[in-house]
Design a protein around this nucleic acid. Structure first.
Lengths: 207, 207
DNA sequence: GTTTGCATGTAAACCGTTACATGATTGG
DNA sequence: CCAATCATGTAACGGTTTACATGCAAAC
């Protein structure tokens, strides 16, 4: 149909992507490289800092940690507690550190993202403009909430000085990407809502 | 750890999200609502227009179309061709149209996105700054290519007038989101590369 | 006293990707 | 002559999500 054809694919730095990506595995290596952690700790880290671009369930994390152990990339260390459940601290091995370094050097294939909001928006012309307004307003509310949360985290980090500036620098860079995307989304959303209010978007009756 | 706690979750418009999202199913309904299509057509539509925020494999599309048929939401119509394979045109039923409308009215849960580039970037402090530069430059190249592709598609669409302005309006809105995000990413990337070149990002030796 | 937080896991279902299979026509 | 396009599908695997299961302690 479109003479311009399909969206072009990337040519990755190191081309060989065998069969499975297993991104979670490498994220776990990355987290354990900073300090030993339990599955529980890792889940918290996901929710607090990584959720904007990746997340995993508890069950997935626990089984992935077992897989790392089986491959000799991490080793569990039981920490007995009283009054609360024992913890299983996973420590990265030398092999684990090497595997992380290998992954960091590899190119990232340009994989399509999945965004359910945009997927639905694409088809909203089949519904009425009231439904569209509701979705756009919900999206705006979500964005404002996330931006507020980001601001709060920023305040917090600004207080205490960094222990490892090298690690922090890239984490802050990721945060910059996140913030820029949120603001970009917000601008588009505001414009769309304004157009809707002004009756500038076509309505089903004109279809 | 972080006193600010976890990222807040959305309160969706209509809360009940039963067990499976099955977003692909609804995207198929949305595509078929515009016109009857074959699995092959649908895959092309994905690659040409939807790939920025969703995609699916041929095999997944074919089996999803079968599932729609089994549920009475779409009906296949065999189009015999000579010289090339027969086509199976899927036509949306009334039930299918109703199911699409239901989905359009439902709220979108704020699901985390998965972005492998950001996931890797987050940990690049564990590598050397040369690796970081390569990844950032690759990302910039990817963004520029996508923006160029977007521009080409825009030119194309500007030519011919829309048949159904109501449907087109929302598709263009999705394109606006996409473009805004790409430009936001590009700005962050350029800034990061400039900082790297100026030696403003901490190097491993300081770790 | 009920909810939340700490802490680990198993089982099943579901979604997504890759590999495999087929076969004619058109374009380079 | 070889590659790409048209066109549909199956089988197997791998990754992700949900539901289920347990149990104590602290906070509300």
């Amino acid at each position: 149909m479109a003479t311009t054809g399909a969206r072009p694919r990337a040519n990755s730095q190191a081309a060989e992507a065998p069969a499975a990506r297993n991104t979670l595995r490498y994220i776990l290596l990355g987290l354990l490289a900073a300090r030993p952690m339990t599955g529980y700790d890792i889940k918290q880290r996901f929710d607090a800092a990584l959720a904007y671009y990746w997340n995993a369930d508890r069950s997935q994390i626990y089984s992935a940690l077992k897989a790392l152990t089986a491959e000799g990339l991490a080793e569990p260390e039981l920490v007995v507690q009283d009054g609360r459940p024992n913890r299983k601290l996973y420590v990265l091995t030398e092999a684990g550190r090497a595997e992380l370094a290998r992954w960091l050097g590899e190119g990232v294939p340009e994989r399509y993202a999945k965004d359910e909001f945009l997927a639905k928006l694409f088809f909203l012309g089949h519904g009425d403009s009231e439904a569209a307004r509701l979705h756009l307003e919900q999206h705006r509310a979500d964005l404002l909430r996330e931006l507020a949360h980001l601001e709060a985290v920023k305040q917090e980090y600004a207080q205490r000085p960094a222990r490892r500036p090298q690690l922090l620098a890239y984490q802050l860079l990721v945060r910059d990407y996140n913030e820029a995307r949120l603001r970009a989304d917000l601008a588009v959303t505001e414009r769309a809502l304004a157009r809707l209010a002004a009756g500038e978007l076509p309505t089903p009756s004109q279809d």
